[in-house]
Design a binder for these strands. Structure first.
Lengths: 120, 120
DNA sequence: TTTGATACGGACAAATTTATCCGTTATTGC
DNA sequence: GCAATAACGGATAAATTTGTCCGTATCAAA
């Protein structure tokens, strides 16, 4: 069962919409894997070993519900399931690349700041 | 006292860096207000009435610690404090605009999906 | 002198997200 | 049969974020 929000979601501006569907610790990595052709849940898990399979499944479900990826079940035994980006998911790639570029360009400063926050 | 993280922060890719400094329910609105010339805490609060002053202060502090805004205390009575974007904060504006544009372009679909998640 | 504006943050509760533990089903290979 | 792989999700604990309730201080104006 999925968690039921108790406070209203704010979607004033487009950035809030973006944050809403992107928030989730592993979602970026998941989208990235799928974009790079790793489609099966087990394969994805092998590329994101820090997270448990359970958690990845949950976030994959959210991505599906938000319409960024689609899930194809081949209905064969042994099981086979594949995820792929939807059109909406694809439209997100250049946006992700823009933000990722900003992060990389400022990595040194950002890492230092983030680090100093986590000690005092 | 600020919360002490217990699990390691993941900063593999630039997008994670972006998410790290942008995560926080009111940060976008705060940056937006400051960018648009509303600099004093009380004024900012008037533009974001859904949040309590306490919460806004906390997130403003985080933005300062992450180096996105700077805080100038005029050391006069009655109190006067002003926030402004740092160079790093400014460099974020076009990135925010890119993601916001994506959100707006897909608002209809996204709102519908987000909404349907919140009912079943 | 009481009210209101400015500014800030401790202490704690509530909401939300993430992680861990385990149980299910079915197939392949040894 | 027994272990490994593939797939999925309930129940619950732990971590993290957000919100609420207060208390501090200074000054101005009514």
């Amino acid at each position: 069962m999925m968690y039921q929000k108790k406070t209203p979601t704010i979607l004033d501006c487009g950035l809030h919409l973006f944050m809403e569907v992107m928030s989730g610790k592993w979602k970026i990595s998941l989208l990235w894997s799928i974009y790079h052709g790793i489609k099966r849940p087990s394969g994805i898990h092998k590329t994101i070993t820090q997270a448990s399979r359970r958690v990845l499944d949950a976030q994959l479900n959210q991505l599906v519900l938000h319409g960024l990826i689609s899930r194809k079940d081949y209905h064969i035994k042994p099981y086979k399931v594949e995820y792929s980006l939807t059109e909406l998911g694809h439209s997100l790639i250049p946006v992700i690349e823009t933000t990722a570029r900003w992060g990389e360009e400022n990595r040194l400063v950002l890492e230092e700041k983030i680090f100093s926050c986590s000690i005092d």
